[in-house]
Simulated scan of single mutants.
Amino acid sequence: MRIDVVTIFPDYLAALDLSLVGKARQRGLLDLHVHDLRDWTTDRHRTVDDTPFGGGAGMVMRPDVWGRALDEVLGAGPPGDTPQAPPSHEPAPPRSPSGSTLVLPTPSGEVFTQRHAEDLATAEHLVFACGRYEGIDARVAEHYRAMGVDVRELSIGDYVLNGGEVAALVMIEAVGRLVPGMVGNPESLVEESHGAAGLLEYPVYTKPPRWYGIDVPEVLLSGHHARIDRWRRDEALRRTAGRRPEMIAALDGAALDRHDTALLAELGWTVSDDGRVVATPPIGDAPAE
């Protein structure tokens, strides 16, 4: 997989040289490049923003600068040196948009989930465009989407950051760890939170068996693998019901076994005749007087 990141703060992405992502780069599993957006400016001040049309606070990132950068990074622009065009230059339509996905981190985007990570992990080429200030001119997303580029406007949560770099780091790590060979033991991806089971991960423990008077659950020391598996499943259900009830409501009731349904009943959930998992009483309803 090739990943390109375009930003006005390339040093912000230095974390991509660390940990598993850094090792994946060294081993050639990730072909990862960070670019300075200002390399595509044409004035002596290396300007990337201007005042918003219609007035208002803040500055907006210019579409002409982003167009020159993305045409080249998406693999569509002419090879070699950055083209030296006047600031009014209109970017040429990408010649070969297929195979590339343009990711625009933005608080106004769709909330990024593990499902998005799994989807993006199948892409051949990801390009992250890290906005700043009040964001990137909306015509950038519109233009590349119209040209056939797979454009994703994604948010990592219901809050606002100073720029897209932190969000890009989050998404690159979430996607990168799904690339075959990046995580040493692929089985560790199966049972973790937000995986295929649709549950949060169960609590985990290691040595020593007693710490500050707190013992590791006895079942984990038993060596009885079936009991351990059942305990972990039960704890995942309990943790998810307590912390993320909407994930319990999204479960497929038909895929639950009798033990699952009995435990969920204790936790205040029932499986309806049509296979839906429903809170009793439903979430948000006041208890009966």
Rank of each mutant, 00 (worst) to 15 (best):
V5P: 10
F9K: 07
F9R: 02
D11L: 14
L16S: 07
D17W: 04
D17Y: 04
L20M: 14
L20P: 06
A24P: 13
R25E: 12
V34I: 01
H35V: 02
H35F: 09
R38E: 00
T42H: 04
R44T: 01
H45E: 11
H45M: 01
T47A: 09
T47V: 11
D49A: 02
P52M: 10
F53M: 13
G54H: 10
G54P: 09
M59K: 02
V60L: 15
V60T: 11
M61V: 04
G67Y: 05
A69N: 08
L70M: 01
L70R: 08
D71I: 03
E72L: 05
P78F: 04
P86Y: 02
S88H: 15
P91C: 04
L102T: 03
L102G: 11
T106Q: 06
F112E: 06
F112Q: 10
T113N: 09
D119C: 06
L126N: 12
R132E: 02
Y133P: 01
Y133D: 00
D137R: 00
A141C: 03
H143R: 14
R145A: 15
A146V: 03
M147S: 15
G148T: 06
D150Q: 09
S155L: 12
G157I: 10
G157A: 13
Y159V: 12
L161C: 11
E165T: 06
A167L: 08
A168Y: 01
M171R: 08
I172A: 09
G176Q: 07
R177S: 08
L178N: 12
G184R: 14
N185K: 06
E192D: 15
A196L: 14
G198P: 03
L199T: 08
L199G: 07
V204A: 11
P217I: 12
L220T: 09
S222Q: 11
S222N: 11
S222M: 09
R230L: 11
R233E: 05
D234T: 01
L237K: 10
R238T: 00
A241R: 10
D252R: 15
D252V: 09
D252M: 05
L256E: 13
D260N: 08
D260P: 05
D260C: 08
E266Q: 15
L267C: 12
T270L: 13
D273Q: 14
G275V: 09
V278G: 04
A286K: 14
